[in-house]
Computed example of a mutant assay.
Amino acid sequence: MTLRTVLTATAATAALTVAGAAHAEAHGPMRIGITQNNVGVDSYQTTYEKAFIAAAEANDKVEVVVLDAGGDVARQIAQMEDLIQQEVDAIIIWPTNGEAVIPAVRKAHSAGIPVVVTNSNIAEAGFDFVATFSGPDNVTQGSRSAEIMCDRFKALGIENEAQVVQISGQPGYTTAIERQQGFDDRLPEVCPNVTLVETQPGDWNREKSQQVMEAFLVKYDNIDGVYAGDDNMGVGALNAALAADRAEGITFVGATNFSVGYEAMERGEYWGSIYQSPVDDAEAALQSAIELVSGTELPFLNYFDTPKITQDNMSEFTKPVF
């Protein structure tokens, strides 16, 4: 297979085109476009892109146009319009903002191009224009993180007095909203006497999350648990607690088990997370698009499983590469 770099018509955005035409059917390979959120921002998204390209290269019936919005909503909308102009057979979008991309998704739908939303869903107002969502169930992830924390508090015998702080993801980002919702709703169901004292956004950023945790440590003398919307932020919070010599006695729980989280679990400093593979995520999105173009009907919510991982069962899981 060949991998070549082309320049798209809109905003002169560099795109990777992966073509597998060698054994393609007479009408040529199906063309699938993807516009990603922000490949450079974290290792999960970088690994996702590599896995997506690898899966496309392995399939000689597929040609993909791989774009990255760089976290810029306007650029992502321009990329959507460019893919519509190119008349691709399907579009995969990892939304930069769940609300703002709806008009562009509607435009693709009107053009008869099926849209797969990957990883983080768009806002409900746009659901009618989406063929399927492929990704993790973020509400369930938040719920499972609450269960991990509650189980740990019960094992420590502090489930009746524990105090928890939360570091959420990027405001307005569907994944952040849903993971917080899952945690906020589930914690009082399983541990009704645990108090969630405050939530602040960490924007998926380790340094910002460390600063948020530093402020929490100044403000609260007693913190028994920290829930972070992903392990990148969770480790930022851990670093702040270690620097303040207050990490011992705090249960750190994240979601999306990054390698830094896994390593902190190995050291006994970080208690648990949710295991989510960017490779599974990328392959599921591409497969969903292929099935739609091939005429297969898919459920609107096409989730892949994301199990609980803690210090107790981590030996059953391979260390994340991201």
Rank of each mutant, 00 (worst) to 15 (best):
V105E: 07
I122W: 04
A90Y: 02
P103W: 15
S110L: 08
I93A: 14
I113E: 05
Q141V: 02
A100N: 08
I113M: 09
I122N: 00
A146C: 06
A123W: 14
E99P: 13
F127H: 13
R106S: 10
E99I: 08
A108D: 10
T140M: 13
N121V: 11
G112N: 08
V130Y: 01
A111G: 12
E99Q: 15
T132I: 11
S134L: 00
K107S: 10
I122E: 00
T132E: 01
D128V: 09
R144K: 12
T140Q: 11
S143A: 08
A104H: 06
H109E: 14
A100Q: 09
P103F: 12
E124L: 13
V130T: 00
A100P: 01
P95D: 08
E99N: 08
G142C: 12
A146F: 13
N119D: 15
G142V: 09
K107P: 03
A125M: 07
F127Y: 12
I93L: 14
S110T: 15
P136E: 04
G126Q: 11
P95I: 03
G126T: 08
V116Q: 02
G98V: 00
V130Q: 01
G112Q: 08
G135Y: 02
I102K: 00
S110F: 14
G112Y: 01
T132K: 00
V116E: 03
Q141G: 05
E99R: 04
I93E: 12
S110E: 15
I122M: 03
F129V: 06
P103C: 07
F129K: 01
D128S: 11
I93C: 10
A111C: 12
P95G: 03
P95K: 01
G126V: 15
K107R: 11
P103I: 13
V101K: 01
S134W: 01
K107E: 07
S134P: 09
I113H: 09
V105G: 05
E124I: 12
N138I: 04
E99S: 15
S120D: 09
V105R: 02
A104C: 14
S145H: 05
V139P: 08
H109S: 15
F129I: 15
T140R: 12
E147K: 07
Q141M: 06
P103E: 09
I92R: 01
A90C: 11
V116D: 08
F129A: 11
I113L: 12
A125C: 12
A131P: 03
D128H: 10
F127P: 04
W94V: 13
S110H: 09
F133Q: 00
A111T: 10
R106F: 07
P114W: 00
E124F: 08
A131S: 13
V130A: 01
F127D: 11
V139I: 15
N97R: 07
D137P: 11
V115A: 07
H109D: 14
E147L: 11
G142Y: 07
G126D: 13
G98P: 04
A90E: 04
V139S: 00
S134T: 01
A100I: 03
D137E: 10
G135F: 02
V101M: 05
P136C: 03
A111S: 15
T118L: 02
V115G: 04
N138D: 13
F129P: 08
V139M: 05
A104N: 12
